[in-house]
Design a protein around this nucleic acid. Structure first.
Lengths: 183, 183
DNA sequence: TCTGGATATATCGGAGCGATATATCTGCCT
DNA sequence: AGGCAGATATATCGCTCCGATATATCCAGA
């Protein structure tokens, strides 16, 4: 049975304890967000599909008058999750408008190209701060992998910010940019 | 006038010399591919839109019986491109199935979690090789920015491969992974 | 008591991507 | 010479996915 990656996000998120669609979405936004997102438009239909397929099981858990269904993983679901984890990861994509702009920066005067990398650096500096603020929570958990990935994200953004800084210097050093097309 | 990022990819790609949709696609696949892609399904309709908006100009340049239109940027197009380049970059996304799997690796025995980072490392090692093979071509051009971005891509993938290597060691060192949930 | 924000589910439009269909051209092998 | 594979060129389709929003209930604090 072929499932979408989003299906496995759900399986993973309910694998430790039962959760509602809303909770799953909130979890994704606070953890996997920087390398994998999921929208309500994917989560709710997928929950029904997985439920029908017997990989998760929904249990009514209303709050007063408000409907609420929490989903727990089944044995079949655990098996499917583990099977997927054992397969070689495929999808790897990146979309960075900053790099795209830098790529075309030849039509700008040099000082304006510098502005692009400055903006990029700022973004990654902020991302580092944001991820660091999450770290204490990840430290409390007994599962070490989310923490490992989070720290990876921090180091990655530090690296990226550093690269931007180096490029900033390089762009400001005429000797290093011989041949630059200053329009 | 609000344009899609893909529109600016096209403007950028035709800003130095006129090109056909097919050439633009080939260029994207060989240069911006690792941080920004574009499909035929975007490029051809967008070429018509931009042409209608007066930002590019199509000229028939058939090869024998085969129709062919090359598009050149107009002054309005150059202005639009520069304006966009001056705006702060917004979009920044990453989708990495490997990190996602690593995030959920707690349900696997340790040795299998190691396999995930091994796969990831392999991918980035290969990407480094592939990008390095493009470098000589970028060195020939007078525009330094594509080369700068390409080298950034190489360094980034080297960094990522290195991180994977470190994680591999860490996962294999029991002391460093105290609390790991070896199922 | 009222209100704003959190919880909870559902859905829609638009964008983007991969794949494929169609057609012509070119170079190479036999 | 013929023919075939692969490159050039344009067009289109289905699918997935994301952001935004609609609806409704709950709860905490002013």
């Amino acid at each position: 049975m072929k499932l979408s990656p989003t299906a496995y996000v759900i399986l993973g998120m309910v694998s430790r304890e039962p959760r509602s669609g809303y909770e799953i979405k909130a979890l994704v936004d606070n953890s996997t967000r920087f390398f994998w997102t999921a929208s309500y438009g994917q989560i709710y239909p997928e929950l029904k599909k997985l439920s029908k397929a017997g990989l998760i099981e929904g249990v009514d858990a209303p709050t007063g008058e408000r409907k609420r269904t929490v989903y727990a993983i089944t044995e079949a679901g655990e098996a499917a999750l583990r099977e997927w984890l054992r397969e070689r990861p495929e999808t790897y994509e990146m979309r960075d408008e900053g790099l795209l702009k830098l790529f075309f920066a030849g039509v700008l005067p040099r000082e304006e190209a510098v502005e692009i990398v400055r903006s990029m650096r700022q973004r990654h500096d902020r991302l580092v701060e944001r991820l660091r603020s999450i770290e204490p929570k990840a430290l409390e958990k007994e599962d070490p992998y989310p923490l490992l990935v989070l720290r990876g994200g921090i180091e990655f953004n530090e690296w990226f910010a550093g690269w931007c800084k180096r490029m900033e210097s390089q762009l400001l050093d005429p000797a290093a940019m011989k041949g630059a097309a200053d329009v």
